[in-house]
């Protein structure tokens, strides 16, 4: 074997070794290009994950004690809200309205925190918006058309999220114990927000639209079913643009919690709750 052949063989060995190292550790990791091709003929899935937190920590019902901006300690014993009229926005600015989208998210029911949207056109979605609450048209529709999450009947899913024919659904329900609430009110606070405008008599309209953008696109494909992971900060109910003190709220001995659209609006709850939502991250996981 001559010297050049020898060098060639050695180089080939080194090349092999080097390519092995490169294939193992180098470059950014990504999906195969074939898996990213948009098929306009088949629709896909996208999940909205409502991950309820208080400040920086995971919400633990009844167990953990949190503090509001006034330093008042409180627990969260119930945290439920309605999400409706979901609109997905593509990177090119076009939108897709998810038909008949009404969801009731409960901290006590893990399955309700995953809202799976099916039959979604494939594409790259960079934004999501929804109504926090149940829109006026649906709220005013015959009760026979309000089924599933919207069923206010005795055995319906929305039984504890409905006031009356006129006031309608409770959009956001937050309650729990607090040392700031006097013992004659059982040390229990209740902040219930609703109000779609009223069926028979006019009420205040507390519906709010939440619009969010995603840090990275959610790529709906044949084999990719993304999850948009939202963080919903229950602490913002008291600590939004309006800071709420339970001590001053419950100072009046006749006060028994927020239970009407007008009271919720006066306290600034709808705007506070509009600011509860943020997108933490997007998973573009395979189906």
């Amino acid at each position: 074997m001559n010297a050049i052949q020898h060098i060639r063989q050695r180089s080939f060995g080194w090349f092999l070794a080097l390519s092995l190292v490169v294939s193992l550790v180098a470059c950014t990791e990504q999906s195969d290009p074939g898996a990213l091709v948009i098929d306009p003929k088949t629709n896909g899935e996208l999940t909205l994950e409502f991950d309820n937190v208080v400040g920086g920590t995971n919400l633990a019902l009844g167990k953990a004690t949190y503090k509001n901006s006034f330093g008042e300690a409180f627990t969260v014993d119930a945290f439920n809200y309605f999400v409706s009229n979901v609109v997905l926005k593509k990177a090119d600015g076009t939108t897709y309205n998810v038909p008949n989208s009404y969801y009731l998210v409960r901290e006590s029911l893990a399955s309700s925190q995953l809202v799976k949207l099916t039959d979604i056109p494939q594409g790259d979605y960079t934004g999501v918006s929804f109504v926090l609450g149940v829109d006026s048209t649906k709220s005013a529709s015959p009760v026979t058309e309000r089924i599933g999450a919207l069923d206010p009947g005795t055995y319906g899913q929305a039984v504890d999220m409905y006031w009356s024919w006129n006031s309608g659904y409770i959009f956001v329900r937050l309650e729990g114990t607090s040392t700031a609430v006097p013992a004659d009110r059982n040390g229990y606070y209740e902040l219930h927000t609703g109000g779609f405008g009223g069926m028979t008599g006019k009420t205040v309209n507390n519906l709010r639209v939440v619009s969010l953008t995603t840090p990275t696109p959610a790529t709906v494909r044949t084999r990719i079913a993304p999850t948009i992971h939202l963080l919903v900060d229950a602490g913002k109910v008291m600590d939004g643009s309006t800071k709420i003190s339970l001590t001053s709220l419950y100072k009046d001995r006749t006060f028994n919690g927020i239970h009407s659209p007008e009271a919720a609006a006066k306290l600034g709850l709808p705007d506070n709750q509009q600011g509860m939502f943020m997108v933490d991250h997007v998973h573009n996981d395979p189906k």
Binding site: A110, T227, H229
Partner: peptide
């Protein structure tokens, strides 16, 4: 596919609930 699971008591009501990590 990513699934969130910490209220284990409610597990039985969750269809197809998996975890990837």
């Amino acid at each position: 596919m990513k699934r969130l699971l910490f209220f284990a008591l409610l597990l039985l009501s969750i269809p197809g609930w998996a975890c990837d990590v």
